[in-house]
């Protein structure tokens, strides 16, 4: 893939002047950088990009971009984004979220967004913890992770977002590590270009509440496989990997959602004959 920067826009053109609230060392800074680099590569003007989010540390990202943004309520970013894309198919729509927002309170929307296959890109910054509320276990946290809210751990099996995305019908599935900016940038570009619902999970360490995640940079590795278009094969690979395989894992060919609001409208008077007797 050609990763040359577009002539029109640089990554900095997609940044707003607002300073992130994130802790120093947060993986989300890298996601923001990769995201803006990907937009520059895509060359889409900032005003034609919409970044939709929910609640949590990662969901603060829209205000840090120079795109149109929507920082909504907790868990509802996907339907906000789907409504926008269906109403305005001309826009490039990103939904950006975290593991609590996207997989816990918004879990049902995740399933149905994969099924619906609206042409948008869903980026989840997964740090396996609720950071904004200062360190509670999320759906992707290990069962024995000790915290004030769940002393000794939740004892619950972690949620497996990639497999669930596959089973629910997502058209593009990838895992990246926030620290690998080059690969993350390339994958976001590909996710946008791939038709339908594209899901990119980015392992993004929370250095404050999960300092152990600083070790992720040594654990991640590029998946030693080519992306497949067979969901069963992709599911087997993901189910049996160590959770640190990165790269594009699945590219599907399912037809994207194709009902959109048009640019011009007929006179509603055409609806009235059915009522006349």
């Amino acid at each position: 893939m050609n990763l040359a920067q577009s002539d029109t826009f640089k990554a900095a053109d997609y940044r707003s002047g607002v300073s992130p609230i994130w802790c120093p060392g947060c993986g989300d800074f890298h996601v923001l950088l990769s995201f803006t680099k990907a937009l520059a590569e895509l060359g889409t003007a900032p005003e034609n990009v919409a970044v939709i989010s929910g609640i949590g540390c990662s969901s603060r990202i829209p205000a840090y971009t120079n795109c149109y943004g929507f920082h909504g309520v907790h868990g509802r970013a996907l339907p906000l984004g789907a409504g926008l894309k269906v109403a305005r198919p001309d826009l490039t729509v990103f939904v950006m979220s975290g593991d609590g927002d996207g997989f816990s309170i918004g879990g049902n929307h995740f399933l149905h967004a994969c099924r619906r296959n609206v042409d948008l890109t869903y980026v989840v910054m997964d740090n396996q913890v609720y950071g904004m509320t200062k360190g509670q276990p999320s759906p992707t946290t290990e069962p024995d992770w000790d915290s004030a809210l769940s002393p000794g751990g939740t004892g619950l099996r972690p949620f497996h977002p990639l497999v669930i995305a596959l089973a629910s019908g997502a058209n593009f599935v990838a895992r990246e590590f926030s620290g690998d900016i080059k690969s993350t940038t390339r994958t976001i570009v590909e996710a946008v270009r791939h038709p339908g619902f594209s899901f990119v999970e980015i392992l993004s360490p929370c250095v404050t509440f999960r300092p152990d995640e600083k070790a992720w940079k040594n654990q991640v590795h590029v998946a030693a496989v080519q992306a497949t278009d067979d969901p069963a094969r992709a599911a087997r690979r993901i189910m049996t990997d160590d959770g640190f395989n990165t790269g594009v894992l699945y590219r599907g060919a399912r037809k994207p959602y194709d009902q959109h609001v048009k640019d011009s409208f007929a006179d509603p008077a055409i609806l009235e004959p059915e009522f006349a007797i």
Partner: peptide, 20 residues
Amino acid sequence: VQAEDELASISMAIGASFGG
């Protein structure tokens, strides 16, 4: 659009309206 629940239906309407 048929939504998965009312949390989604109102959110979709807000998203579409944000788009004008």
